[in-house]
Simulated assay, not measured.
Amino acid sequence: MAVKYETELYSPVKAFFEQRGFDVKAEVRHCDLVGVRPDQDEPLIVEMKKTFNLSLLLQGMQRLKLSPFVYLAVERNRSKRGAVNQRWSELTALCRQLGLGLLTVTFYKTKAPLIDVLCEPSALIPPTGRNQVARKSGVRRKRLLKEFDERSGDYNTGGSTRRQLVTAYREKALRVASALRTNGEASPANLARQTGVGSAAAILQKNYYGWFERLSRGKYILTIKGVQALTEHAHMLEDNDMIERTINELDVTYSVSGVNKDDLAHIAETAEQYLKNTGHI
């Protein structure tokens, strides 16, 4: 069953690496998929395409400058039409020599997609060589991990093109816009305190998305575009509000009574309610 869009590869690939213990997010600084794991210093990076081609290979080589753990992911078409589907052993050998991992996704009509890892990243590169490759772009790797850490969730789909991405900066701007909608008008300092966004003043002054309007010195209001943006991202804002309320409730519980069985029961109930509201259970 051939896929129409490469974004269809994202869900099964994400689930596969989550089973390996990674926290996964999509479209982080131009990478289709990025994963982090507590026991691994370097990030996992996956680039996806419907078919194996030179563009995908070049993307993979660029990502090796950020991390030695880079996979290429493509669909494996069961119809076996086309030259690529008949040359997996050669493509695997090529990726292995370049230090790239290669995995395929096979889709079925009546059962879940199958992930097949044809080779792991950097299988034939000595450890010293891998470290040197990663160090060449240490600054870019730090930016990648910073962007990953500052996102509250995974609100994009890997492989997306020509779509507005929810970046860490956009999330901060949305939090500022949400607070501004509540207040009507406010100063940058008040918004920074209310939202916890230290860069609120810079976000308001730059007004990159056109969501804010300066009334007077130190006074801003929300524009029509800002209201529309809040409507478009309502689900994300609801998730953030639920998390903040949960944290606040737990903070109050701990400060008042300490840890006991009732506290643990409350934590379990709150977590269960959050998962239900966000569609995870």
Rank of each mutant, 00 (worst) to 15 (best):
V13M: 03
D32K: 05
L33W: 01
G35K: 01
P38A: 07
P38S: 07
L44A: 01
I45P: 00
V46E: 02
M48N: 06
M48K: 07
M61P: 02
Y71I: 01
S79A: 14
V84N: 11
S89P: 00
E90V: 07
T92Q: 11
C95H: 02
G99N: 03
L102D: 03
L103F: 08
F107P: 08
T110L: 09
K111S: 14
E120G: 09
I125M: 04
Q132F: 13
R135I: 06
K136Q: 15
K142Q: 12
F148M: 01
R163S: 12
R163Y: 10
Q164R: 08
T167C: 02
T167D: 02
Y169V: 06
E171W: 02
A173H: 03
R175W: 10
R175P: 07
A177S: 15
L180W: 02
L191G: 03
A192Q: 04
R193L: 10
A201N: 13
L204G: 03
N207S: 06
Y208C: 05
E213N: 05
I224T: 14
K225C: 04
D239Y: 11
E244P: 01
V256E: 15
V256F: 15
N260G: 11
K261S: 14
H266T: 12
I267R: 08
E269G: 10
L275V: 09
N277Y: 04
T278A: 05
